[in-house]
């Protein structure tokens, strides 16, 4: 494997890890339920895309890369579905979680 591909893969992996770390930090810093979901969506969008793309470059043209592409497709399909299930349940249980009136009572 050429050095350029190795370096590109390393850059992708490190920046993906950085986005995952920022997302985790956001989970702690954000003030309410829905804003925490926003922070978490950082992890399963660009965090997953960058890390899996970096791993694909390590895999080269092989079955491993095909599996990684499938994992990426499934993650990009299930991520929004999970977020939608979470937030719509919250909306039907307690609408103030979504509409933001909880800021005065929760803090």
């Amino acid at each position: 494997m050429s050095i350029a591909v190795n370096w590109l893969s390393a850059i992708l992996l490190v920046s993906g890890a950085a986005f995952c770390l920022i997302g985790a930090l956001g989970l702690f810093r954000m003030p309410s339920f829905i804003t925490r979901v926003h922070a978490a969506s950082l992890i399963d969008s660009l965090g997953a895309i960058l890390i899996l793309t970096g791993l694909m470059l390590q895999g080269g043209f092989s079955l491993v890369t095909v599996k990684l592409i499938l994992i990426l497709i499934f993650l990009l399909l299930t991520g929004p579905t999970a977020i939608h299930a979470l937030t719509s349940t919250a909306l039907h249980e307690d609408a103030s979680l979504i509409t933001g009136k909880e800021n005065s009572s929760n803090t």
Partner: peptide, 15 residues
């Protein structure tokens, strides 16, 4: 459309 909105962070399609 809804999934694209959710997939881009900072916007979530709730319902």
């Amino acid at each position: 459309h809804a999934n694209s909105i959710t997939l881009t962070p900072a916007t979530i399609s709730v319902d």
